[in-house]
Nucleic acid binder design. Sequence first.
DNA 1: TTGTAGGCGTTATCAT
DNA 2: ATGATAACGCCTACAA
Lengths: 335, 335
Amino acid sequence: MPSRPTIRDVAARAGVTDMTVSRVVNRSGPVSEAVRLRVEQAIDELAYVPSRLARGLRSHRTHTIALAVSDITNPFFTTIARGVEDAASDSDLLVMLCNTDESEAEEIRYMEMLAGQNVDGVLLVPAKGAEKACALAERYRLPLVILERRIPDNSHSLVHCDTRSGARRMVEHLLKLGHREFALLTTPIGVTTSDDRAQGAMEALEGTDGHAIVISETLNREAAGKVVERWASMEPRPTAMFALNNLLTIGTLKALRERGFRVPEDVSLAGFDDLPAPLLEQPFLTVVSQPAYQIGKAGVELLIAEITDPSCAHRQVMLQPELVVRSSCGPISAT
Amino acid sequence: MPSRPTIRDVAARAGVTDMTVSRVVNRSGPVSEAVRLRVEQAIDELAYVPSRLARGLRSHRTHTIALAVSDITNPFFTTIARGVEDAASDSDLLVMLCNTDESEAEEIRYMEMLAGQNVDGVLLVPAKGAEKACALAERYRLPLVILERRIPDNSHSLVHCDTRSGARRMVEHLLKLGHREFALLTTPIGVTTSDDRAQGAMEALEGTDGHAIVISETLNREAAGKVVERWASMEPRPTAMFALNNLLTIGTLKALRERGFRVPEDVSLAGFDDLPAPLLEQPFLTVVSQPAYQIGKAGVELLIAEITDPSCAHRQVMLQPELVVRSSCGPISAT
DNA sequence: TTGTAGGCGTTATCAT
DNA sequence: ATGATAACGCCTACAA
């Protein structure tokens, strides 16, 4: 036997036909006790595992879903991935992992591969617009659920987080600490979440004497340094910085310290997205924390609904973020 | 058209047979220019994507590999995963992600699913012995490459890291700093890497007047606390602690601080596995760092070799870890 | 250059 | 309770 045994090998060994084996395997019809035993023994002896491939060819279901994120290395996406895998596992689904690096071309490449692979559905954290990827999913009839970011048209199921309110609450917190001048640190890629967050921050300032300036840099190695330079040269210099994503927050913290600024004595720094507790040597950053694991889980649930009934209404799930107050934001200093 | 278009839909639309379409798609035979154009247009209009499923049924290749780790949430495995996905992507392979939670039962469950799914091969970071999972892979004729941990029998390709030498170098470093009493922090699960690391540490002590005591706790929430309690009550109390995996290191650091011990003033703490630089708010821990990304990449290369030629000799790749000296280990204090 | 026949491993459907 | 037949989408081998 060069390759893996098939249902017919099992049938031959048990002295029955493949249909009988199929019935035993799937409990899909009546089989006499004696025959069942013979078949089960044959299955065991040959180490037979039914081919999901062949099954999928008939059933048009592969029991496989895909998760496409920009970079699994970002703990926020890692946690989503764990949520997805756990939920998928509960439903006997396998998960394909795709890193898009925030690139539309990669999104498109993966969409094609995934369509060919006949995955049952796709969970996507879209890059920028991602209209193209979404359109492709439609074209290929791939059930699709968007995670974490809104996209312009809302013709898809969606799981996201009320980051606007999260940002608002953070700024309110900073206002209470006495801050009035804010720097909003963001990246220019037109990701809707950033816009939402900025908007939430602005909302909190309405009707107060506080105001905010947006500092936007492409997210790369030097981004944080540039951000800090710009901040340092501002007049008046904001007493609080609010970074609108996790890596930018940490980068800014490092850049500040390298230039001799102390946090929170010289400037308060708030961020978005928390790091998983086991990784934090000493919890320090005050952040708006999103329930990444839940986002993943909920995503799978919506996706399964779409797969089960492609004509079902698209649903939107909005989760609440949490304000985690730690020590990177202090009361405004008198100086 | 209720479902996705097939090669025959395209053929019908282009006024040819499926074989001609196949030839166009795979460039596998001569096709006249005119026909090719018609076919390509039909493909485009129908958004046809060849089914890898059906293809796999014939070719016995699905262009899919699986990566099974204990927990993708651990940055060490996350980085491996990224390496795997990048390398796989280069070879036009898709990656299934599996979390085994260090459980043999899960390993077995996944092995079965993956065999059924006809994945081309599996990359496994084995739990404990994992002999069962490896035996299963063999039984199911699944090409298998082991990552990061040795397993008893060496009948598989393997990518790992010279952690013994890594541990030895770390202890030598600590010896130079004046330390003589060491506590080796480990988890009792019989993972070979832990044994290797302990052995490497012991090697460094041979012929010196230093010696080490092993403290072993099941890795869970309270593990680090217990470890520190045990350490604190020792006589003489070791001046240096060396934790043999990453989460345990961070946990120990936190537990020490909670109990009022300063690192490195009161005790030096060294660890295994680094955290990705972008996540480190302030690099502090002195660690033996393993090239996780490379492990993933190399694993895929070995796996592809196994897939391409199942009869090929198993290969073992051993990568070198790096000693990263930061500030969690200091010279022994005179007190 | 293009087409026909058959089979990859399963299962739905219709016999027996 | 069991079996025969056909079909899922594609491609190899062979024929025209």
